[in-house]
Design a protein around this nucleic acid. Sequence first.
DNA 1: TGCAATAATTCAGGACGTGCAAGAAGTCGT
DNA 2: ACGACTTCTTGCACGTCCTGAATTATTGCA
Lengths: 199, 199
Amino acid sequence: METEGLRARKKRARLEAFVDATHRLAAEQGLDRVTVEAICAEVGVSVRTFFNYFESKDDAVLGMEHWRLDEAAAEAFATGGPTGDLLADMQALTTSALDHPPLGKERMERAFELAKGHPELMLRAYTHVQGLHDEIGALVRRRLGTAADESAVALIGTLLLGLAHATFVRWDTAGGTGDVQDHLPSVVADLTAIFAPRT
Amino acid sequence: METEGLRARKKRARLEAFVDATHRLAAEQGLDRVTVEAICAEVGVSVRTFFNYFESKDDAVLGMEHWRLDEAAAEAFATGGPTGDLLADMQALTTSALDHPPLGKERMERAFELAKGHPELMLRAYTHVQGLHDEIGALVRRRLGTAADESAVALIGTLLLGLAHATFVRWDTAGGTGDVQDHLPSVVADLTAIFAPRT
DNA sequence: TGCAATAATTCAGGACGTGCAAGAAGTCGT
DNA sequence: ACGACTTCTTGCACGTCCTGAATTATTGCA
């Protein structure tokens, strides 16, 4: 199957049309002045269809569908790899997650730009990422084995999400060029400096 | 002025009435089935009045008004105190912040209980806390002085919020008894173990 | 082509949240 | 206690988001 079917292609095209139309209108007149109705008029479909694609207006701005962890990376982490050092492996897992922006870099960049002026969007993104929380929790639990202390699991899960977030912010304040995951090491370095000041 | 005026007392009473009614109804029939209209019927005021007290329905669940940092603790942190060690002082600041729940412990506990089944609430709380973000940023910047690297400021600010959040979760998983801030040391200890595994 | 699955549309409606202007209730000076 | 002043409450109209159910169009496949 080289072609993935007309149905799937149309679906994806329409999804991108929604996202692009939203971004275009938001750039023109500001996000709060953009109604779902206007977006749909731009795309040429009914409002109800919009909500078949997205759960909320915000999701259209973010271009959110499903953000999954990379299978291989997740499995490696759960089984104690790839290096065996918890911190290093957390970095590896985070890197792999940041490596797959669902709809391309330019769209993600525009979405993030809009999100800076609209905190609700950042939060909406968080709920999506939070969807990964259970999955992450399961991974951490497998990795820690029987010694799994629930509060430690929760902490590590939160920390993983926090690492991703901080890395994202740092990438953005650095100008938003290059790969997001390149900024992870410096985040970890700063945190290490805080928690282990004696070199 | 011993009495703070009838106006202020009535306002506070009504605010608590809103929160309590919301909690009671939510416990009975589930939060999503509770409409603002129902809450107002319970309290005996108009819907419009509800929105004079809260910006959103979620805020009524959380009983949110303004959550301010303690003046003295903030000042101490900004000027390099109280101990001089960044990590210890972050703990002190976080502790003082967790020490002042606006509407009493029982209400906070019920709100948190509800929030566990409704992630949006946790996020809404986050926006409120986020209001502290700028304030915290300013503190961190003052403390770091001219050497203030913006990305470090952002990281430390996020970390402070993260500490508070993790502490809160840990307090809850421990049964939700006692003082929230008592769990902060163990959070810090776990993080230290992760970032500085060689003792 | 013709049948089954899937997606889009129409329609009706609930719920949240806001602006506005009129009226009620608290506050204060005298 | 009275009237002027401020603040709060209320009703109403409206816009927007989002959902469910039933209907119609489109696509996949034999």
